[in-house]
Design a protein around this nucleic acid. Sequence first.
DNA 1: CGACCCCTTGACATGCATCAAAGGGAGTGG
DNA 2: CCACTCCCTTTGATGCATGTCAAGGGGTCG
Lengths: 245, 245
Amino acid sequence: MPVTLRITDSEFGLSGRALPTGSFADDIMAPIQTLNHHLRGLQEFSARQHFGRNETIFSEGDRADRFYKVLSGTVRLCRHAPDGRRHIADFYLPGDLIGFIEYPDHPCTAEAVTDTTVNSYPRHQLERLCAADPEIRAQLLAHLSATLRAAQQHLFVLGCRNAKERFAEFLLRLAERTDVSQGDRLDLTMGRQDIADHLGLTIESVCRSIAALKAEALVTVPNTHQLILNDVAKLRALADGRDAL
Amino acid sequence: MPVTLRITDSEFGLSGRALPTGSFADDIMAPIQTLNHHLRGLQEFSARQHFGRNETIFSEGDRADRFYKVLSGTVRLCRHAPDGRRHIADFYLPGDLIGFIEYPDHPCTAEAVTDTTVNSYPRHQLERLCAADPEIRAQLLAHLSATLRAAQQHLFVLGCRNAKERFAEFLLRLAERTDVSQGDRLDLTMGRQDIADHLGLTIESVCRSIAALKAEALVTVPNTHQLILNDVAKLRALADGRDAL
DNA sequence: CGACCCCTTGACATGCATCAAAGGGAGTGG
DNA sequence: CCACTCCCTTTGATGCATGTCAAGGGGTCG
C-alpha cells in the first residue's frame, strides 16, 4: 500500500518531511509520527533554539534534563576518543527526536552539521505526560526499539562490510529517510569527514567509494552535496553483500 | 559504595550471578534486577527449555511472540549476511533477558553458545502486566535504554578501534558483567570464532591479539577457555585508546 | 581576485585478512 | 591406558584493502 503519511507540525510552522511506507523507514518512522502527535501536550514548555554549523547542542556527560526535536537542519550525535578519533553514532534530520533515552546524562555529544533549529522540552514534563497517559510510554518503547534496531543494523554493517558496501548502505538509508527515490537528487548535508566518521572509514576511503560508484554509473554526482541514485536495486545488492556472490 | 546486589531467582532454582556496582555494569544490570523482580508475575506462564551447543533458540524473522531469560549457559544474538559472513550483536549470560524489543519479529537469530537453559514467556502476558502496572513499562524503558547505550558503545569500538583495543574492551566488559576482577579467572565460554564475529575481526586476528597481550603480561592464559586479567588499568587504557597517546 | 576550506586523486605504508600448516585437548575406540 | 581422530586454536607467510601522507582542484566568501 503506497500510502504516504506526512508529519505536520503546524504549531511551529514546520512543514514536515514526507515519509515513505515500507520496511526500514516504516519501522523507524512510524513511532515518531505517533510520538509527535502525543508530544503536542508539551508544546507550552518547548523552547526553540538555533545553532550554527559545528556548534554544540549538548555535550557527552551533560545532564540529560531536556530532549530535542530537530525542526530544520541536520544534527550529528558523536563520541570523541582520547586520541582524537571521532565516531558519529547517527545523523538526525527534521522531525527526528534526540536525547529520548532514559539516561541520567547524555552518552553522546550533539552538534549541528548545518545551521539547525531545534525545539527542546524538559524531560520532567514528559514524565508527567507519561504518568497521565500510559500510552505515551508504550510509544516511547516503540521508538526506542526502532532506534535500537537501527543501531544493530549499523553494527552489522561496521562488523561485516567493506568501504564501498558501507557507503552504499549509508546512501540507501539516507534516501529512505528523506523520501528520495531512484533518479531524485539526494542531499548530502553532511561533509565527507562526517560520513567517514559515521562509517568507520577515512575521508579518502569515502571519496574513493564515491568515485567507484560513479565509475560503475550507479550514482551521478552533480555537485559535492548532492547525489543521484541511478540503480537502487544494484546499490541494495551491494549494500547487502549480495553483489560478490 | 561497594555494595554488591544479587539476583536470586529461587523459584527456578537459579542462584543468580553477583553483580558489581559501578559505571558500566550498573547501567546495564540495575534495570535487569528490577525487571526480574517485576517479572515474577509471569512465572506461571513460563516455559523452561534446554538447548545444546550451537542449537538455534529462534531465528531472524521469526514472530517475536515470546521473550527469554537465560538461566544457565551463554547465548549469542547474531545476523547472517548472504555471503556467509556473520555478526554477533551480543552475548547473553545467566540473568540476561533476550527478545525484549517491541518488534513484530526478531531482527536477529539466537543460538546457544554452550549448553543452555532458558525460560521463555509469552509477550502478550507481559503486555497484560504492563497494562496493570505502568511501572513495569518504565522499567522496560530503562532496560531498553541500557541496551541501546551498550550498542552505541560497541559501535564506537567497531568504528574507531584496532584489533587489540577491541579485544581488550571485550575482555573488560565480560569481566564486569561476570563480576570478575583483576587476578580472577575469567571464563571465555564462547569460542575464538564467536569473539571474532562479535568484534568484526577474523579468528586469526583474535588469536594474535591474545598473543600480544600475553607477551606484554597484561593477561595470563591458563587454558583456552579461561584467562586472567593481570592489569585492568592498563587494559582499560588500551581499550579506551589512551595507550598510544 | 585571493584566501580558505573541503574535496579529490595519487603514491606509498601497514594492519588485518587470507591461505596454509602445525599444535593441543577432548572424546572414542582399540 | 594409549592411539587416533576431530575440532578448535595458534603461528607463519603472503596479499590486499584501507590508512597515511602529500599534492592539487574547485567552490565560496570576503
